[in-house]
Amino acid sequence: MFQIHVSTSINGDDTEFSCEADETLLDVLRDRLGLTGSKEGCGTGDCGACSVIVDGRLVCSCLMLGAEAQGREIETIEGMANGSELHPLQQKFLDHAALQCGVCTPGFLVAAKSLLERNDNPTEEEVRYWLAGNLCRCTGYDKIVRAVLDTAKEMRKSPKTKKTAAKKRVKA
């Protein structure tokens, strides 16, 4: 086997894995690391269910090779809550019933988190365009957009939540 050895950081945890060169980061997360929270809805960048944050940037993990993870910092849905404390977006998604089947939910949450880290006061239009690469077939997006707008509002009100949410785990 021609495997590539990769050292990376996933949700603050130093992680090493071996993969074949044609495996995507999504394949690695799901099949090698057991992090199945990132979903594959298409494998070709069209649905956003596989969204992760790499070095602070939102990307589709299906459009990145596992080998490219070397030396990067990767955030997935599994790292979004701080232990038992949900990220405000996670809580608002529950409160607003912003999920039906829930398969798109991890991707939406990761993408929305990346939006709110850049823009704490997005308009409805900004939310809709930022999330246009995340497909949801169940909800018609209404409750998702409301949940994101409401989270932004709440995070603006209490900068504390914002800080805990943005807090990164210190690397060992």
Partner: peptide, 9 residues
């Protein structure tokens, strides 16, 4: 080009 995710790359 593509979505926010695609534009990141």
């Amino acid at each position: 080009i593509g979505s926010t995710q695609v534009q990141g790359r």
